[in-house]
Design a protein around this nucleic acid. Structure first.
Length: 266
DNA sequence: ATGGTAGTAAAACTA
């Protein structure tokens, strides 16, 4: 159990948690996080590999479905007030397998796997834009920008031209299109600070996702920064670092995403 | 040129 004045959080799109257990457990051994948020667990709750986490001393909450989506939160501390989905009484689909919320060490954690959108002329893209708007409304109605909140996960948005390779060719991509960036930024502007950019304001080629289908994508720098950790301003003032950890990419059978971590102090 | 690989879970579908 760490000092109550520090908080260490990370986010990881596992792309199938059962195929990534060796990576997650090894990373947790090396990184004594207070909270790890996972997306794309791709497993229904009955088959979730809970025991390896509890045996290693972690609490875990999860909500998944067969083959797609799925979120989990792992912590050595008590995971208070877990809620899956928006629980806002607004949408027909509550998206419980894309949104996990809880409180850990007095910090409200929001873990999201934002819909990718498929294509800008696909109805799923409009659902993506609406998803961000619904999330913003959730923050407006159930949260305060003055309290310590961390919003993290796979946002499926590269916020600026610095955050994707060949941005000039990505204007019609669902993860870079102007409307997707605006929808994401609208939520950010409610009251969040992008912690990676707080510490690396102008660094190019800092990516969290490399498509499996592109040969030697990491070596060639063909990536996207679409996984993010954001904090409300009072909490962001306590942040001391935020970094992309590419080491797990060298381990066997890595995910197409990697770990993004942030540390708070004081 | 519109591919490519990976996970899930059992043939496509999603990313």
């Amino acid at each position: 159990m760490g000092d109550l004045k520090t908080f260490f959080i990370a986010t990881f799109n596992a792309n199938g948690i059962r195929a990534r257990m060796h990576i997650i457990l090894k990373w947790l051994e090396k990184n004594r996080v207070d909270c790890l948020c996972i997306q794309e667990t791709k497993v229904q709750d009955a088959d979730f590999p809970e025991a390896p986490f509890t045996e290693a001393g972690f609490n875990v909450i999860f909500r998944g479905q067969k083959a797609y989506n799925g979120v989990a939160v792992i912590s050595p501390h008590e995971i208070e007030a877990p809620v899956f989905g928006f629980s806002d009484g607004q949408g027909e689909d509550d998206d419980e397998t894309r949104l996990a919320r809880c409180t850990i060490k007095g910090i409200r954690v929001v873990n999201t796997y934002v819909p990718q959108g498929r294509a800008i002329d696909d109805p799923n893209y409009q659902k993506k834009l609406a998803w961000f708007a619904r999330l913003k409304r959730l923050f407006e109605e159930q949260y305060s920008r003055d309290e310590p909140i961390v919003w993290c996960g796979d946002m499926n948005v590269a916020p600026t031209p610095l955050d994707v390779y060949h941005p000039e060719k990505k204007e019609d991509h669902v993860c870079y299109h102007v409307d997707a960036r605006r929808a994401f930024n609208d939520v950010v502007e409610w009251g969040f600070v992008d912690l990676f950019r707080k510490f690396h304001p102008d660094e190019p080629k800092q990516y969290t996702f490399y498509d499996y289908r592109l040969p030697k994508a990491v070596e060639r720098g063909l990536g996207w920064r679409i996984d993010h950790i954001l904090a409300t301003r009072p909490l962001a003032e306590r942040a001391v670092d935020c970094w992309i950890d590419l080491e797990p990419r060298k381990w066997k059978k890595p995910s197409d995403h990697t770990f993004l971590a942030a540390r708070f102090q004081g």
